[in-house]
Design a binder for these strands. Structure first.
Lengths: 337, 337
DNA sequence: CTGAAAGCGCTAACAG
DNA sequence: CTGTTAGCGCTTTCAG
């Protein structure tokens, strides 16, 4: 049973192929009853338009590529869901590509996506350089691009993400207000997110008139194991910090594990704040204070920006969506009542 | 700058379009040096084959649909990653569709995927009936299908999943061995997974000679909020259970939250075992005992089954991959030393 | 070994 | 309002 084609429906009905095609797409140039008759038969025969053939001639694939570093991080999973939810009702299908934070994997994925003639691309890039071949070929194909989460300076693209400096500031200020005096920061990756949060951290410390001990600013990453390791290092210091702002919730979760294992209490000995408000933060060892990034709003924002760009045939100027951070205080940082 | 086509490369090189096409696909009928020359120029011009056009004539899209109920559950996210990791190196792209556990959404997604002429489908279905129009149209299009996680009786499809009865048995037996006498079960959805685990629970209880108090077998779902609510109900019972086997880790996490809030201790008052070994189980309030389902092996198994089916042009008989469960004991159920 | 012709299923442009 | 023609970029088939 080969799939039903337009031609089959047409012959079955004794009309021309074009009539069916038009009826299907609500073309105005068609009689009301003819359309009804066609639509009915199309339904009965369970005809499915062939999107490849359609795309071939219209130049639109109705495919959108979503390139992210790690689906397992609920932050990206949530973004992926928000993007899908926005795009699916508009007839787009989302192809998700996992880069595992590898630049090379990312480039390969994008290259294939481009070959598939995606109508648009949403990328949380592991790249730092807008002059990389990847960005050049995207620009070359004139495929609308929206960057999310990580901003890449110089890339001709819209961006949806959070105000990272604000996140760092908010979290750090909160720790200071809770009475922490030796505040540490476990850094994220050297991308806009990590750098922004670090900057926010410094800003808040400076504003409070607290010195930043560089021993307290340690490299981490995006994973809980990185947070665990970094925290163990901090605890070995002669004077361990009494408050830690962690790049992300997974990092914070790992850090908390290290603290508990070392026999310290949270928040009594060390207060912790993460970022991201991942879904399970509330269920952790000690419910985790965090800065909500509004990931679904980032996803929705990205989808909106992309749709707008895709519907214009001509290049649209890059736009920005910055989602404001929101502090969520839970047990891990509550020292005063 | 329109994308480079085969024709462009050919003209540039002064050869026919066919020569380029053949060189690209390692066709034997081509001279060694011609091929080298072509390949070099193809590289330089950064030519990307148009997959839509190619698919149009070959009838293969190199697209695979992955239909799952919820990307946010790390169980499915991990499966998605495993599937992608297996399929991407083979040249396939995975289109992930989120159904939010809605049958209707699932049907719509599958219908579009079919219209896109996917080469294969992997589905964790919310449907229970193999005679639904969805399964009929998949069969009608002769698209290879692999069911994952949830088995649907009667569907002409391969299956990769865990031994759910074994999971229930393993978890429950463990609780009994730890000294629990009033063992409860928070059920999952009424699909093969939920039913299987329930059956395993009953089996273990029977084997141990313990009666199953039907008050202790309560409906839950797949989410932590469901676990939270169900557990609150259980705690209100005159004699609350002293051990609970929860359908999944998220459910267990929710249940633990309810227990802690009510002022009981884990595992002292109530021991808890979940299922799934989700990534953050180790970081929870009380590290969660769980039954590992080997989700990545499920994903890999599904991908393997699908690839085998896709490479055969003719229908292949359904195959099965059952991943054996593995008990992981953490603090939430450790009552004896 | 290389090339020319035909056509995949569909839609845009034009002609009745 | 309806039908005809041409072609999207590629591969398959067949002829040199």
């Amino acid at each position: 049973m080969r799939p039903v084609r337009l031609k089959d429906v047409a012959r079955d009905l004794g009309v021309s192929l074009m009539t069916v095609s038009r009826a299907l797409r609500n073309h105005p140039d068609i009689g009301e009853q003819t359309r009804a008759r066609v639509l009915k038969r199309v339904e009965e025969l369970n005809y499915q338009p062939d999107w490849m053939a359609r795309g071939m001639v219209t130049g639109r694939s109705y495919l959108v590529g979503l390139v992210i570093p790690d689906l397992m991080h609920s932050f990206f999973a949530e973004i992926a869901m928000a993007v899908s939810a926005k795009l699916t009702p508009l007839g787009y299908q989302v192809v998700i590509a996992n880069t595992e934070e590898q630049v090379l994997t990312e480039e390969r994925h994008v290259s294939v996506l481009l070959g598939r003639k995606v109508d648009g691309l949403i990328i949380a890039s592991a790249q730092r350089n807008a002059r990389s071949p990847m960005f050049r070929s995207i620009a070359g194909c004139k495929v609308p691009l929206v960057l999310i989460d990580r901003f890449v300076k110089g890339a001709e693209a819209s961006y949806a993400g959070s105000d990272d400096e604000g996140i760092g500031d908010l979290a750090t200020t909160h720790l200071i207000e809770e009475g922490c005096r030796r505040v540490a920061h476990i850094k994220g990756p050297p991308l806009s997110t990590g750098r922004g949060r670090l900057q926010g951290f410094r800003l808040a410390m400076k504003r409070a008139g607290l010195p930043v001990d560089e021993q307290y600013v340690v490299p981490g990453d995006i994973s809980d194991t990185a947070g665990y390791d970094a925290m163990r290092g901090l605890l070995k210091l002669p004077k361990p910090p009494d408050g830690v702002f962690c790049y992300s919730d997974p990092v914070a979760a790992g850090a908390m594990k290290a603290i508990t294992e070392a026999g310290f209490s949270i928040p009594g000995d060390v207060a912790i704040v993460g970022a991201g408000n991942v879904h399970y933060s509330d269920l952790l060892r000690v419910p985790l204070s965090t800065v909500d990034q509004g990931c679904s709003r980032i996803g929705e924002g990205a989808a909106d920006l992309l749709v707008r760009a895709m519907e214009h045939r001509e290049m649209t100027p890059p736009e920005l969506v910055l989602v404001g951070p929101r502090l969520i205080v839970r047990e891990s940082s509550r020292r005063t009542s």
